[in-house]
C-alpha cells in the first residue's frame, strides 16, 4: 500500500510542477535588468567577469547578507557542537603514510590555487566563495593527515573577524566618501589587468579569507566532535 501512495504522490506532484514550468520556454525570458547590466557593467565597475560585477557592485548587499548567513551557520554549529577553545585530541586513527606525505605536498599547491581563484575573481569565473572553500579544504587536509595539530581556533577566529570587518569597512568607506554604502570606489584600471575593477578584488579577497577561515573552523569542529 505504501508503495502505491508514494508513486501516486510522485506522479501527481510532477504533473502539477510540469504544468507550471513547461511554458517557461528557455531563452525567451525578458532580460529587462540583465540587458541594462550587460550594457553598463563594464564601464560602471571595470570588471571583466560580469557575474562578479553583479555579485559585488550591483547586488553587494546580497553578498553581505550571504556572508552573514554563512557566519551565523558557522557560529551556530560552533555552539551546537560545543567546541570551545580547548583543543581536545580525537582518537581517530592517524591517516596512512601516503595521505600524510600527499597532504604535505598538496597543501602549498592548494593554497596557491585558492589565492589564484580569489584574486582573479573579477576576471575569470571564481571569486570569494569558491576560493574560500578551497582554502578551507587546504587547511582541512592538514588535520586529515595527522589529527594531532588541528587548526588553532584562536588564529582562524581572528582572521575571520578581521576579514569580515574589512569587507564592511570597504563598504563604509564608500559610504563616507560618496554617501552610498558598498559603492565600488578606487580607479577602475584598464580592463582585464590584475589590478582593475577598483575595490571589487579587495572585497573578494576579504570575502575569500573570511569564508576560508569560517569553513576551516566548521570542518575542524565537525571532525573533533567527541566520538
Amino acid at each position: 500500500m505504501q508503495r502505491w501512495t508514494t508513486i501516486l504522490f510522485l506522479t501527481g506532484l510532477s504533473i502539477v510542477l510540469f504544468a507550471i514550468i513547461t511554458p517557461l520556454v528557455l531563452g525567451q525570458s525578458p532580460m529587462l535588468v540583465g540587458k541594462l547590466i550587460n550594457a553598463s557593467a563594464v564601464n560602471d565597475t571595470g570588471a571583466a567577469n560580469l557575474v562578479t560585477a553583479v555579485v559585488l557592485a550591483y547586488r553587494g548587499l546580497d553578498t553581505l547578507g550571504e556572508l552573514a548567513i554563512l557566519f551565523t551557520a558557522a557560529t551556530a554549529i560552533g555552539i551546537i557542537l560545543g567546541t570551545t577553545d580547548k583543543t581536545q585530541t580525537t582518537s581517530s586513527p592517524t591517516a596512512g603514510f601516503i595521505v600524510a606525505t600527499a597532504a604535505k605536498v598538496l597543501f602549498p599547491l592548494l593554497l596557491v590555487f585558492a589565492l589564484y581563484i580569489i584574486l582573479h575573481g573579477h576576471l575569470t569565473p571564481g571569486g570569494g566563495f569558491q576560493g574560500g572553500a578551497v582554502l578551507a579544504a587546504a587547511f582541512f587536509l592538514l588535520t586529515l593527515a595527522d589529527s594531532g595539530n588541528n587548526i588553532k581556533h584562536k588564529v582562524t577566529q581572528v582572521i575571520e573577524a578581521l576579514a569580515g570587518t574589512a569587507f564592511i569597512v570597504l563598504g563604509l568607506v564608500s559610504f563616507a566618501l560618496q554617501g552610498v554604502f558598498l559603492q565600488p570606489w578606487l580607479d577602475k584600471g584598464e580592463l582585464g589587468s590584475l589590478f582593475s575593477a577598483g575595490s571589487l578584488p579587495l572585497l573578494y579577497l576579504a570575502l575569500g579569507l573570511k569564508v576560508g577561515a569560517e569553513l576551516a573552523n566548521l570542518l575542524s569542529s565537525l571532525a573533533n566532535v567527541e566520538k
Binding site: G12, L13, V16, L17, A19, I20
Partner: peptide, 13 residues
Amino acid sequence: LILLVVISLLWVL
C-alpha cells in the same frame, strides 16, 4: 505543508 502546496497549485490550475 506539501498537501497545502499541491492543493493550492491544483486550485490555481
